[in-house]
Structure formats: structure tokens, C-alpha cells
Computed example of a mutant assay.
Amino acid sequence: MTGIERTDLAGSRDGVREVADGVLMITRAVTNSYLVVTDDGLVLVDAGLPRSWPLLCRALEAVGGSPDDIAAVYLTHGHFDHVGTLRRLQRRHRVPLHVHEADVPLVRHPYRYDRESSRGLYPLSHPGGIPLLARMAIAGALGVRGVDARGDLVPGVAVLGGLVPVATPGHTYGHLALHLPDRDVLFTGDALVTVDPYTGRVGPQIVARAATADSRAALAVLAELTATAASTLLPGHGEAWTRGVDLAVAEARATGAH
């Protein structure tokens, strides 16, 4: 529908590609956000890193839109790598920003988050993540500025476009996945990723302790993802997963916390 490349191998390179009907994945530095074309207008799921802005504009152009046409941004959580373009969207284009109430302070201060291990020392014991973290830094990961978002996303209460928030606390205290039932798609944010920037490990998994508040809880809430029965999972980091949520969750549980 858009002329954008369609592939299931997203996340390994920068660009814009269609990964489901009316869903464009925007990837910069192994970090994904998603532009969703809905009957209620254009919706952005997560906001990537600051230097993903040109790719967001490319995605919007592909569907005949502009930043002014975004009806809402829905955040899975408030970490720095998911809020990088929010300030520009809010101040220049007056786009409404929404998140779970528990992550409102994190969106405002996106580097102040609880974690189980030191993020500074973690790469020393997991050198596979160093190239990915370096790419994120180049894409603006060290210079993200927070904003105020509306803490009005409620699990189970549908929002624009028929997106249904799913409570998945653990990575952050207010983390949500977003289910799009009519397209059999689940935006997992960092509740389940297919590449971990902190380790470089590929495959379905939760994010490393260096960026996760409670890994035990993060593993436990994978059951909430399974309950959606979604076929296509679109993570915050890594490739789209099209082999069903059950297999993805089974692999993530087998991998465990790291």
C-alpha cells in the first residue's frame, strides 16, 4: 500500500519498512517505533531516538502525511530510547502524548529509572552489546530531553485505532504492550525484544538487568502477552517476530534474565 519495503527482517538496519498491514516500522540504531494507519488517523507507537526524526518523516510521507497529521503518540514506556522525538512532536506539532500513569515521571526524566545492574559496568561483562550501544549514542541516546505526557493509558481500555493497552510491568513499572486485534499484531515494546542492545544477543527475550527494574516481574508478565494470541510481535528492539506469541514467550522464558 505504501511502496515501502516489506520484510520480516527488521531491526538489523536503519530504515522504514512495512511489517504488517498499515504498520510501518521505523528503525534507527536497533531501536524501533511504529507508524500505524488507522481509521481514526495516524498513530505513533513509541518515539525512538532523536535522530530517527528523518525516518519518521519518510514514513509519514509514504502514507501521505506529515508530523501535523499524527493524532496521538502511545508510549509502551518512558525510557530515553523510546521518547527521543517527543519534544519536537509536542512543541512544534502539538501532538498528544500518552503513557501509563506510572511512567509519567520517567517520560519527564528518561534517564532516571530503576534497574537491577549498573548500566555503566554492564558492557564490560557483555561486550556484544558495545557496538549496538555505540550506534544508539550516535543516534542521540545521550542527549534526550524529557517531556510531560498524559498518564491516561489504562490496560484493557481501547484507544484510537482500536489499540488495546496490555499491562506488562517489569521492564519499567508502567510498561504496556499495545494489542491491535483486528490486524493480529502486538507491539511489545521492551516487554519482549528480539535483540538486546545491552548484550547483543538475538532472539525473543526480556531486556538485560542493566535496563530492567524487576526481571522476575518481567518474566512473569509474559503470560499477558500470551493471552493476546497474537501472530505478529513488533518489539522495541530487533526484528519483527511472525511465528506467534506462544513460541516467542517460550523462548524468552527459556533464556531468562541476564
Results as ranks from 00 to 15, higher is better:
Thr2Asn: 14
Ile4Thr: 14
Arg6Asn: 13
Gly11Ala: 02
Gly15Glu: 11
Arg17Leu: 13
Val19Asp: 04
Thr38Glu: 09
Asp39Leu: 06
Val43Phe: 01
Leu44Asp: 03
Leu44Gly: 02
Asp46Thr: 06
Gly48Met: 07
Leu55Ala: 12
Ser66Val: 04
Pro67Lys: 01
Ala71Glu: 15
Arg88Asp: 00
Arg91Phe: 13
Leu97Asn: 05
His98Leu: 11
Glu101Ile: 11
Pro105Ile: 08
Arg108Pro: 05
Pro110His: 06
Ser117Lys: 15
Leu132Ala: 11
Ala134Tyr: 12
Ala137Phe: 13
Val144Ser: 05
Arg145Asn: 12
Val147Tyr: 11
Asp148His: 14
Ala149Pro: 06
Gly151Ala: 05
Ala158Val: 04
Val166Thr: 02
Gly170Arg: 00
Gly170Lys: 04
Gly174Thr: 02
Leu176Asn: 00
Leu178Ala: 01
Asp184Thr: 07
Asp196Gln: 07
Arg201Asn: 08
Gly203Ile: 01
Ala211Gly: 15
Ala211Cys: 08
Thr212Trp: 02
Ala213Phe: 04
Leu222Phe: 03
Glu224His: 15
Glu224Gly: 08
Leu225Thr: 05
Leu234Trp: 03
His237Ser: 12
Thr242Cys: 13
Gly244Asn: 10
Val245Asp: 01
Ala248Met: 07
Val249Arg: 01
Ala250Ile: 00
Ala252Ile: 09
Gly256Lys: 10
Ala257Asn: 00
Ala257Gly: 06
